[in-house]
Amino acid sequence: DLSALRVEEVQNVINAMQKILECPICLELIKEPVSTKCDHIFCKFCMLKLLNQKKGPSQCPLCKNDITKRSLQESTRFSQLVEELLKIICAFQLDTGLEYANSYNFAKKENNSPEHLKDEVSIIQSMGYRNRAKRLLQSEPENPSLQETSLSVQLSNLGTVRTLRTKQRIQPQRTSVYIELGSDSSEDTVNKATYCSVGDQELLQITPQGTRDEISLDSAKKAACEFSETDVTNTEHHQPSNNDLNTTEKRAAERHPEKYQGSSVSNLHVEPCGTNTHASSLQHENSSLLLTKDRMNVEKAEF
């Protein structure tokens, strides 16, 4: 173990290094160091905050020279020094078990990766560091076993998940096959086929009936047209017969005018059967003409 005197000496050296690497504005270890034209180094955030307070150039807090945003430059070497100082402080805390008085939040800088452990060898070769390295080497064999167990647990979990997924996939297939086998029997399929065939026959029977009705309507229309044509021909046949009657009536009127007047009046009210309204109107006109002729003949006879 380190003596108290040596611990104090190391602590004083760390404090001196820390004062050199402090920012003059925030009085902390410089984060993202930036250098000016006057070779003074500050935190990048502190300098941008200072420049944004005034429009135009501002003055350096140490030498009062003008500073602009374009004049600022990043210093990589200074950032490396800060990183190495942080590593020294971490090693000091691990070796002594004491917390550094002016320690900052170094938890963000710590890294437990194997590459980081290899890099620590180049920091300080001390008894405390050696003991700590031995402890780490002793704890390393235990870690692979834990990793193997965790991997086995994960693989077993994956296997159970896969088996569950396969079961879920197989179950719908089985149910679907069961439904297909038990849903419709052979008799049901035959009945469905016969039902479809009967429906098709009914459709075939319905369509000819409609065509037959249309044919019957067409035949009825044709018969009505033929009947009207026969009526017209009958009226045409009746007209010459009426003319013959008129000639006979004229002759009778010349011989017996008194008797014919009474008979002509009675004939006005008689309509021949089986004739249309057109034929009756023609008869009325003929009878009126005959009456006028008879009157003329009677007057001539009187004179």
Rank of each mutant, 00 (worst) to 15 (best):
D1S: 08
S3G: 07
S3D: 03
A4S: 09
L5P: 12
L5T: 08
V7A: 10
E9V: 07
Q11S: 11
N12K: 14
N15E: 04
I20R: 04
I20T: 07
L21S: 07
L21F: 07
E22Y: 05
E22G: 07
C23D: 14
P24I: 10
L27C: 05
E28C: 11
E28V: 09
E28G: 10
L29M: 11
L29E: 07
K31M: 14
P33R: 10
V34E: 11
S35E: 01
T36A: 00
H40A: 11
I41K: 05
F42A: 07
K44D: 03
F45V: 07
F45C: 08
C46V: 15
C46T: 15
C46A: 15
M47F: 05
L48N: 08
K49L: 03
K49F: 09
L50R: 04
L51A: 06
L51Q: 09
K55T: 03
K55V: 04
K55R: 03
Q59P: 14
C60I: 15
C63N: 15
K64Y: 03
K64N: 10
N65T: 12
N65A: 12
D66S: 04
T68N: 03
K69T: 09
K69S: 08
S71G: 12
E74K: 13
S75V: 09
S75L: 13
T76M: 11
T76E: 02
R77C: 14
F78W: 08
F78K: 14
L81N: 13
E84A: 09
L86Y: 05
L86D: 13
L86M: 08
K87A: 13
I88Q: 01
I88S: 13
I88V: 06
C90Y: 06
C90E: 04
A91K: 14
F92T: 14
Q93H: 13
Q93A: 13
Q93E: 09
Q93G: 12
Q93M: 10
L94D: 09
L94F: 08
E99Y: 15
E99R: 02
A101T: 02
S103N: 03
Y104L: 05
N105P: 04
A107K: 14
K108F: 13
H116N: 01
L117P: 04
K118Y: 15
D119F: 11
E120G: 11
I123E: 03
Q125I: 07
Q125R: 08
S126V: 11
S126H: 01
M127K: 11
M127Q: 00
G128A: 09
G128C: 12
R130S: 10
R130H: 05
R130L: 08
A133E: 06
L136C: 03
Q138C: 08
S139L: 07
P141M: 14
P141Q: 07
P141N: 07
E142M: 03
E142W: 05
E142P: 03
N143K: 08
N143Y: 03
S145K: 11
E148C: 06
T149L: 00
S150K: 08
L151Y: 09
S152K: 02
S152L: 00
Q154G: 13
L155Q: 13
L155K: 12
S156R: 07
S156V: 01
L158K: 11
G159D: 08
G159L: 04
R162Y: 09
T163S: 09
L164K: 12
T166N: 15
R169T: 04
Q171K: 01
R174Y: 01
R174V: 09
S176Y: 00
Y178H: 13
I179T: 08
S183T: 00
S186Y: 14
S186Q: 07
S186T: 06
D188N: 09
D188V: 15
T189N: 11
T189D: 14
T189P: 02
T189S: 05
G199L: 01
G199I: 00
D200E: 02
D200S: 06
D200K: 11
D200L: 00
Q201W: 01
E202N: 07
L203P: 15
L204Q: 09
Q205H: 05
T207H: 14
T211Y: 01
R212Y: 02
R212C: 05
D213M: 00
E214I: 02
E214L: 13
E214F: 00
I215V: 07
D218L: 01
A220E: 11
K222A: 01
K222M: 07
A223I: 02
A223C: 01
A224L: 02
E226L: 00
F227E: 15
E229D: 02
E229I: 05
E229V: 01
T230G: 11
T230M: 08
V232E: 06
T233H: 04
N234R: 01
E236G: 00
H238Y: 00
Q239K: 05
D244Y: 00
T247S: 11
T247F: 01
E249Y: 01
E249K: 07
A252K: 07
A252W: 02
A252E: 12
E254R: 00
R255Q: 14
E258N: 10
E258F: 01
Y260F: 09
Y260P: 06
Q261M: 13
Q261R: 05
G262V: 10
S264L: 06
S264F: 03
V265P: 09
N267K: 14
V270G: 09
V270Y: 13
E271A: 09
E271Y: 03
P272V: 00
C273K: 15
G274L: 14
N276V: 08
T277C: 05
H278M: 04
A279H: 08
H284S: 14
S287I: 02
S288T: 07
K293W: 10
D294Y: 02
M296A: 15
M296D: 09
N297K: 06
V298R: 05
K300S: 00
